[in-house]
Amino acid sequence: MTARLSDWFNKRGWAALIIWLPYIWLVVFFLIPFVIVLGMSFATRTSTAPPFGFGGEDPILNLESYQRLFSDTLYIRAYLTSVGNAVVATVFCLLIGYPMALGLTRVSSTWRTILLMLVILPFWTSFLLRVYAWMGLMGTNSWFNRLLTDIWNALTPEAWEIAHVTMMNTNFAVVLVMVYSYLPFMILPLYANLERLDPALDEAAMDLGSRPLRVFWDVTLPQSIPGIIAGGMLVFIPACGELIIPSLVGDASSPMIGRVISDEFTSSRDWPMASAVAVALLVLLVVPLMVYSYFESRANAVKATKGAP
């Protein structure tokens, strides 16, 4: 028996194991937890421990949580705030990160190493610490806030004078800290993409009569779309579900979805509701991705057949 088993492993078992390992990983750490959460979202809230159960009027499919999801404006507003903040943060990350990534490809290799290290350097400090640092900066009594206040007061008429700039506990603060925290996730994939582009292509476009801005538009930008999408996903998806940043610097009256999930699990002890919110967030994030990749692969297939003889 053992001989036959080792025989099977030697023939095809190892290859199968390597191929299936990522799938096993996904099943154990994504699919099974997801099924548990999905199941929980259809359960009924109880006062037992754990605080949910199946039974009562709708023993298996209790849709109450989902009904509340659509009827209570708290959730809809939380989704909109999340997506809105995430979109704005992603756009700013792109606007700031693209020139930085492009710059990285154009400097000497010595500078490139130094600058790349500076991009990664913030990761060496605790994420939480960096958010606290921003809280200090944005607070009403910080030198930073006083500086901004002084600049504002110096530049505007006296009637508009302010005592301090309100930054803490606003969506502005959430977006600002998210842009700061996620910028490396935009820069690195973009840099990896732009770095692979052949500089001779830029020269060819210039040689054929295009000025630098036109070269960027015609040659660099179209070729960097995969990098933009990769960077955008890496920023947008975690930004949507962000919990810590809005909890620490955000506006408590318009929470983001991560905060809502956390609150439902902890303070209100409504696990089915929390699960339903989480499932809805997943659908919200995954469905556009799947639609996008479906059209992308179809467009590629069409291009391939068109190009063939």
Binding site: A200, L201, E203, A204
Partner: peptide, 12 residues
């Protein structure tokens, strides 16, 4: 105009 050694054709 120049014909590049790598041809530098626009891949997209």
């Amino acid at each position: 105009h120049m014909m590049f050694q790598s041809y530098a054709l626009f891949p997209h």
